[in-house]
């Protein structure tokens, strides 16, 4: 059997499984204005951004199928949740890879940013405001005097 190269595109079956698991991980919440992680735009970003985790995702999806006793994507929602829970319990590192590739893209989607009260922009060039704070809080620290140890 020839394994796919680490950077080869996911197969249709793998893509279906990843989309299904993304949707169970972060479902849509229309009342909050939040798409699901299986939303078309979010999921396209996820698939295009697997990068150094492509091989790890493949392995995790294979483990998920094994735990599901078949194709994870074909299960009903309750059985998908059950298989995903077993993956987290038995293969925490594999589950963490799936979490990483999903949240890295989900939490940069414009709709998600806005729903969280963030501006949909990168940090540079506008930056952010941080208030200086109250430096008089240091008065008691000053009052206690030096705490370093003299050395011979």
């Amino acid at each position: 059997m020839t394994l796919p190269a680490a950077n080869a595109p996911l197969s249709p079956a793998e893509t279906a499984a990843l989309r299904a698991v993304a949707g169970r991980m972060i479902p849509a919440a229309p009342d909050l204005g939040m798409p699901g992680a299986d939303d078309a735009a979010v999921f396209a970003d996820i698939v295009a951004s697997l990068d150094r985790d492509a091989a790890g995702v493949r392995q995790a999806l294979a483990q998920l199928d094994a735990l599901a006793g078949g194709r994870f994507a074909d299960l009903d929602a309750a059985r998908q949740d059950e298989a995903a829970a077993r993956l987290r319990a038995a293969h925490a590192a594999a589950a963490a890879v799936l979490v990483a590739v999903v949240v890295r893209c989900y939490y940069r989607d414009d709709r998600v940013m806005r729903a969280l009260g963030m501006e949909a922009r990168p940090p540079f060039p506008r930056g952010f405001e941080v208030r200086p704070g109250d430096f008089s809080l240091l008065d008691p620290v000053r009052a206690r005097g030096p705490v370093y140890r003299p050395a011979p």
Binding site: M25, P27, M34, D81, A85
Partner: peptide, 23 residues
């Protein structure tokens, strides 16, 4: 932490679940 790191840390620590309770 940023929004991504919040999710990764919180999910890794079991403070943010998969599914309906996530948000």
């Amino acid at each position: 932490q940023g929004p991504v790191a919040t999710a990764m840390t919180g999910m890794g620590a079991g403070l943010i679940p998969w599914g309906a309770g996530h948000h």
